[in-house]
Simulated assay, not measured.
Amino acid sequence: MRHVFLSYCPTSKPDIELMHRLRRDLRAEDLDVLTDEELVGEAIEFAIVSAGAMIAILTPEAGTSSTVTRHLQLAHDYGVRIFPVLASGEPHDVVPPDLDATFLVDIRTRYVRPIGHDLVPALYAHLDADAQNTSTTQPSASQLATLFGFTLEELELNRSGKLSSRQRSIYRQDARLSFIAALVLGLPALGALVAVVQTGLHCLRVSLGVLSLLLGWLAITLFFATIQYLFGRINWAEGELRRSAEWTRPWIEVGNERIDIPLNIWQRLPTSYPGEFRAYFDPMEDLLSIEPVNENEDP
């Protein structure tokens, strides 16, 4: 079961005191609750995007807090379910217009019953469903397509070693960036070495040797960038599907291959899935598509 992130206004003393009370009470219910009071820097963002749910303490102060606004935006961007808790103020003043307030826990006049009888059961129901839906069954190809952002038509093309027009466009864009990076890094260095040779600041033979190595590196880099641009080659790997533990480098591991995926997809994945999978990826090690082994033919 994943943790719950508790968002509050960090500049309001009443909000902080309420956060402490709510955190203590939720932990007494055996819920794993995290707040930014216990975390630093990027760990806060990770705690939000990887949370099973977020509780937002809503007050007039929270409504003007850039911290709370950022927390809510992250949760919204990464599909984290938000449970709003109305602590003070009027709903039309403190509940953000884009926040789903169909389930709103109102603790303005009473605390114990709304938390114990409404919020805690709702959290457990959501987290239990989340755990069961993501890790106990092997997803189908169509479910994986929805999760990873490819189409079944693209999967068919990848099986036959071909890229879709959308995938080729992305792939060529990456290749162009590699080409530009090689030029940006290589040409100034070449110019500097030529200047050194001309001014005689170093031994001419050593300078020419370094210049030759640099020219060779630049030529090889540009060659492979050009090949990547012109010819999209698809690789594949087969085996168990596991997710990386570090959100700073989001990838999945299929068999012995590590394949890069976007962070917003990574945070929705469980640590592993049952069964075996076949993943298709490009030479840049970016995922193209993936499917359960039992739903496809050998390529």
Rank of each mutant, 00 (worst) to 15 (best):
L147S: 10
A87Y: 04
A131E: 15
Q228W: 12
I82R: 02
P121K: 00
G79L: 06
F179V: 03
E257I: 01
E246N: 14
L215A: 13
F224A: 04
F223G: 01
D128C: 01
R110Y: 02
F148M: 07
P139F: 09
R166W: 05
I170K: 07
D25Q: 13
V197I: 08
I82A: 04
L86I: 04
C203K: 02
F277G: 01
V196G: 05
R166Q: 14
P139Q: 09
L263A: 10
P121M: 08
S160Y: 06
G232K: 06
I55F: 02
G149P: 05
A129F: 05
N235E: 10
T137N: 14
V49G: 02
R23D: 14
S66Q: 08
W247S: 10
L208P: 01
L183P: 01
L287H: 09
R81S: 08
G116W: 04
L215I: 15
I234E: 01
V184Y: 09
V184A: 11
M284H: 12
A182C: 12
R113K: 08
L214C: 09
E45G: 05
P262D: 11
L214G: 08
H76G: 10
D36S: 08
W217S: 09
I220P: 00
I55G: 03
E285N: 13
I227P: 01
I107V: 15
L193S: 07
Y78N: 09
L157M: 15
H3Q: 09
A145H: 08
P84A: 02
G186F: 07
A225L: 11
R258V: 14
P274W: 04
A245L: 10
Q173H: 07
P188C: 13
G89Y: 07
A145P: 08
V95T: 06
R233W: 05
G89N: 06
G63K: 05
R2Q: 13
L211Q: 03
I170S: 07
T146F: 04
G79P: 02
D100A: 11
V112M: 03
I170A: 09
E295D: 14
S66D: 07
P274D: 05
L241S: 02
D118W: 00
V49A: 08
D32F: 06
T134D: 06
D298N: 11
A219V: 12
V184E: 15
P91L: 12
G161W: 04
L208C: 08
I107S: 09
I265W: 00
V105H: 04
I227M: 10
P84G: 02
